[in-house]
């Protein structure tokens, strides 16, 4: 037993070379593990569903995939997908165009921030779907109503994150710029906006997800053209399998949205400690 520790130093050369492959293995596992888990769950789901213990309410995974293939080979599917994605992106962009400059403006002076606080705190918690009837009354049940409702829902996270971000910019960095005689606009451009970017990025990512939820929910409830409407349509038709296939498509859209936001964050925030650790420095 006592001999073991004295033996170990002889083994150190191998020990020091060992970490390398193990690190590589872990990196490969970073992508492999979630994929393997997903496939595993799908296989188990398929077996359980095929065994019939859950009844016939739930279609097997393979039938959902088959229904998805049938659905996507239909030109109407792509038209509906286009309707959904278009409203989602236009609504989201409108929100961004309003929220980001407005957030920076409100954060720029204490007077503006204080005087608008009450009305913003009142408007923000209104669930977008609660004003759906009002939106329909004012704008009808078409695309423009959908777009404005999406914009309304997506404005808040971006507006708040922008205000928080601008308020949280390091005082020392701000003072540095000020001591070198930079003007207000220059301080905004070189210090405040880049400094607030980590917050803004989070706001954008949240807003994109919320915008998608509201897009599809509006289509489901009001019946405006798009994926949501189609989900309801096949449900009325009793085609559960296609319904699940469409839900899968909605999920994929959400996943794409988050992945795109994360990729953008990685590019824009390469300097931020959170990205530096992940990316191993740039």
């Amino acid at each position: 037993m006592t001999a073991a520790p004295t033996v170990e130093p002889a083994g150190t050369p191998t020990a020091s070379t060992a970490p390398r492959p193990s690190v590589r293995r872990r990196r490969g596992g970073g992508r492999l593990l979630p994929l393997a888990t997903t496939v595993g769950i799908l296989v188990v789901a398929e077996l359980v569903l095929r065994s019939g213990v859950l009844g016939s309410e739930f279609p097997a995974v393979s039938s959902v995939v088959a229904a998805l293939i049938t659905e996507v080979s239909n030109a109407a599917f792509w038209d509906r997908l286009y309707q959904t994605v278009q409203s989602w992106l236009i609504g989201f962009s409108l929100a961004a165009i309003i929220a980001l400059p407005l957030g920076l403006l409100l954060a720029s002076t204490r007077f503006l921030f204080r005087s608008t606080r009450l009305i913003i705190d009142f408007l923000r918690p209104i669930p977008p779907l609660a004003i759906l009837p009002l939106a329909v009354l004012l704008l009808g049940s078409g695309t423009s109503m959908k777009v404005w409702l999406v914009a309304f829902s997506a404005v808040w996270p971006m507006l708040f994150q922008t205000i928080y971000g601008a308020h949280d910019v390091d005082g020392v960095a701000r003072d540095t710029a000020r001591s070198y005689g930079l003007g207000r606009a220059q301080i905004y451009r070189h210090v405040v906006i880049p400094g607030a970017l980590p917050y803004i990025a989070t706001g954008v990512r949240l807003a994109a997800t919320i915008a998608l939820v509201v897009t599809i929910a509006t289509e489901l409830i009001v019946g405006s053209a798009g994926l949501g409407y189609r989900i309801n349509q096949v449900r009325y038709g009793g085609d559960m399998t296609t319904m699940y296939a469409l839900i899968l498509v909605a999920g994929l859209l959400g996943w794409l949205s988050t992945a795109a936001s994360r990729a953008l964050e990685k590019r824009l925030l390469f300097w931020h400690p959170s990205q530096r650790q992940a990316g191993g420095g740039q």
Binding site: D170, V172, A173, T176, H190, V191, P194, L197, H272
Partner: peptide, 10 residues
Amino acid sequence: EYSRSLLPWK
């Protein structure tokens, strides 16, 4: 606080 005075994105 030099590390806060320098802008990390520049």
